[in-house]
């Protein structure tokens, strides 16, 4: 449904995206990358707000720039929270639904339906100026889906939502993906994306680093030594026992009191599977457990290193 062929976009001397080629089909696809990676630029190219400096962008077989034929079948939820502050949520969604071509009773029925779907029925007749960040996010999503688009582009749609809101919106987007719609969601939080989909596009500094299944990406990551830090009162004893595990490459005591240890492993899945049994069996007390490599920045470090 979405095709990019060697698309680049420059803002004067500053690069937005650089030589990006990819195809995005039905289902939920996450566009993952840290701030400034080029996610928003890519979304603006797909939603026809920008033209590529070089290369080609096609949505539903057409050039999307200022193209009403594409917009009739596409929904967009921008990242920013700005809106028509003096309109109520319902008026806002109704106006944009009418602009998308809905009329008469279908218009009002559909507006009611999507407002309910995003959980805004109770607040729909309040002015947007008085909305919280989460409510703004919900009403933005409502305007994006009100005309039942085949392609839905959402820029950081879970920002500002509370955990319940995140779960509800994640489920809503998954449902849309299951219905065969092409849903593209941008995020800079790996965990958030993992809850939503397995298809990801990984961007960094304007380039598309990787595309595909999230487990493939994880496998790429797992080829590198993975660090795990533990805090325990009996660090030396735990370190000795951990060195017996075949998946552990090395163990380092981080402080003089040996209460913090850092483990290096090439097989984190296996390590995570074996650690609870070992701890229970030997009666170790673990007060802190974290992996500095289990975040998005680490993923990018690995992948950039891999490419280099």
């Amino acid at each position: 449904m979405i095709l990019l062929e060697r698309a680049s976009r420059w803002y004067g001397q500053i690069i937005g995206i650089n030589d990006v080629s990819c195809q995005i089909g039905a289902g939920v696809t996450a566009l993952l990358g840290p701030n400034g990676a080029g996610k928003s630029t890519l979304m603006k190219l797909i939603t026809g707000q920008l033209r590529p400096t070089t290369g080609r962008v096609q949505v539903l077989g057409r050039n999307p720039f200022a193209n009403p034929h594409v917009f009739r079948r596409m929904g967009y939820c921008p990242e920013h929270e700005n809106s028509y502050e003096d309109l109520t949520g319902r008026e806002f969604v109704t106006m944009l639904a009418a602009m998308a071509g809905l009329t008469g009773s279908l218009l009002h029925a559909r507006v009611r339906e999507v407002i309910e779907a995003v959980g805004m029925t109770a607040s729909a007749d309040r002015k947007i100026g008085g909305y919280s960040k989460g409510m703004r996010q919900r009403i933005k999503i409502a305007q994006g889906i009100v005309h039942d688009p085949e392609v839905l582009i959402l820029d950081e749609p879970l920002n500002g939502l509370d955990p319940v809101g995140r779960r509800e919106m994640t489920e809503l987007l998954q449902r849309l993906g299951q219905q065969g719609k092409c849903v593209v969601v941008s995020s800079h939080i790996l965990y958030e994306v993992e809850q939503m989909t397995q298809n990801i596009l990984l961007m960094h500094r304007g380039r598309l680093l990787a595309q595909g299944n999230i487990y493939t990406i994880r496998a790429l990551i797992d080829r590198h030594p993975h660090r795990i830090q533990l805090a325990t009162p009996d660090g030396r004893a735990l370190a000795r026992r951990l060195l017996d595990l075949p998946c552990v490459l090395s163990v380092r005591l981080n402080d003089a009191g040996a209460s913090e240890i850092e483990i290096e492993t090439r097989d984190p899945e296996s390590f995570y599977a074996q650690l609870p049994a070992l701890v229970l069996q030997e009666g170790f007390v673990i007060s802190r457990f974290e992996s500095p490599d289990n975040n998005l920045e680490a993923v990018f470090r690995y992948l950039v290193g891999e490419k280099a």
Binding site: Q49, P68, H69, F71, R72, M74, Y76, S83, L96, G101
Partner: peptide
């Protein structure tokens, strides 16, 4: 942004 991404 909202206006320019509608089929008008």
């Amino acid at each position: 942004t909202y206006l320019l991404t509608r089929p008008v």
